[in-house]
Amino acid sequence: MSLRSGYEPGVPCWVDLSSTDVDASVHFYGEVLGWRAEMVDDPEAGGYGQFFHEGRNVAGVGPVFAEGMPSVWNTYVATEDAAATADRVEDAGGTVVMPPMQIFEEGTMAVFRGPDGAHVCVWQAGRHKGAELVNEPVSLCWNELVTRDVAAAERFYPAVFGWTPRPQEMDGVTYTEWLSGGASVAGMMEMSPNYPPETPSHWMVYFAVADLDDTVAAARRLGASVLIDAMESPPGRFGMFVDPQGAALSVIQLTENQ
């Protein structure tokens, strides 16, 4: 099992769901991915909780930040200093949407918007180190920037996180891996014309699953809008859907050599 007790700076370490209906989301993901939710029993937590699989946290869940905002999966990148990262964001032409904020003794978070329009979060760990299980069925396995401005992203993320872009051609499409310390930590691709014109640049979250067909069928049965039933990729077959509350995510059945 891919167990984690911490993350190096610059590595995506956590994801959470901001939902317009937390109870409905808890039910949906419990049925589709088998997660168990534990909500924080403290009014100051704002209705936040965590999803668990076999006793290990795999993702978070809570209400949207403000009324009228859509449901969305958020990507968090590990940092040793959220305030210093916020300074680099502004120097690189990004926007600090939510300044660094301490969350009890768990850690410090901040939310930024890059010049390409995509939002990304950072996490400075305290007691909460990030996802305890990754790269296994029903856990986080990849984070991918889908952007309308590749050039802006290639300037912004190296300045903020120290990432190095490594583009490669895949079936006539340029796919970029983001490297941190020489290791591949995330991906990037230009948004295709198939996306509705109002869709902004965004970070897509991928969860590994044991059986792609069963997972997509369960999501559809429970009210999800399936965008991709199954598509081949080097890491494995993947699908994409929008959950009943409107948050998009991808699921992938990783090949055995991953």
Rank of each mutant, 00 (worst) to 15 (best):
S2R: 13
L3S: 12
L3R: 08
Y7N: 00
P9Q: 07
P9D: 00
V15M: 12
S19T: 07
T20L: 00
D21F: 13
D21P: 03
D23M: 13
A24V: 06
V26M: 09
W35Q: 04
R36K: 14
A37H: 04
D41N: 12
D41T: 02
D42Q: 11
A45R: 05
G47K: 00
G55E: 06
N57E: 11
F65R: 13
E67W: 10
G68A: 03
M69F: 12
P70T: 04
V72L: 15
V72P: 13
V72T: 04
T75E: 05
T75Q: 06
Y76W: 02
V77P: 04
T79S: 05
A83P: 02
A86M: 00
R88C: 05
E90S: 11
D91T: 06
A92E: 08
G93H: 00
G93A: 08
V97H: 01
V97K: 00
M98N: 09
M98T: 13
P99Q: 08
P99C: 09
P99N: 07
P100D: 00
I103S: 03
E106Q: 14
G107Y: 03
G107K: 07
M109C: 08
M109Y: 13
M109I: 12
G114M: 05
G114V: 02
G114N: 02
P115Y: 02
A118F: 00
W123V: 01
Q124C: 09
G126M: 01
R127N: 15
R127T: 11
H128M: 14
H128A: 11
K129N: 06
A131P: 09
E132K: 10
L133Y: 04
L133K: 14
S139Y: 11
C141I: 10
N143E: 11
V146Y: 06
T147A: 10
D149T: 06
V150P: 06
V150N: 08
A152R: 04
E154G: 10
E154C: 10
R155T: 15
R155A: 11
F156E: 02
P158K: 05
A159W: 09
V160L: 03
W163L: 06
P165C: 14
R166Y: 11
R166T: 14
P167E: 12
Q168P: 12
E169Y: 01
M170Y: 15
D171F: 12
V173R: 12
T174E: 14
T174V: 15
T174H: 08
T176A: 06
W178P: 04
L179D: 08
L179A: 03
S180F: 11
G181R: 01
G187R: 00
M188N: 02
Y195W: 11
P197N: 02
P200N: 02
P200W: 09
S201R: 08
H202E: 05
A208V: 04
V209A: 04
D211V: 07
D211L: 02
L212N: 01
D213E: 15
R220L: 01
R220I: 00
R221E: 15
R221A: 15
G223Y: 06
G223D: 01
G223S: 01
A224K: 07
A224N: 05
S225L: 13
L227I: 15
L227A: 15
D229N: 07
A230Y: 01
M231P: 02
M231N: 08
P235E: 09
F238H: 06
F238K: 05
G239I: 03
G239P: 05
M240K: 13
M240I: 13
M240E: 11
V242D: 10
V242R: 09
D243V: 07
P244A: 10
Q245G: 01
I252S: 06
Q253K: 00
N257T: 14
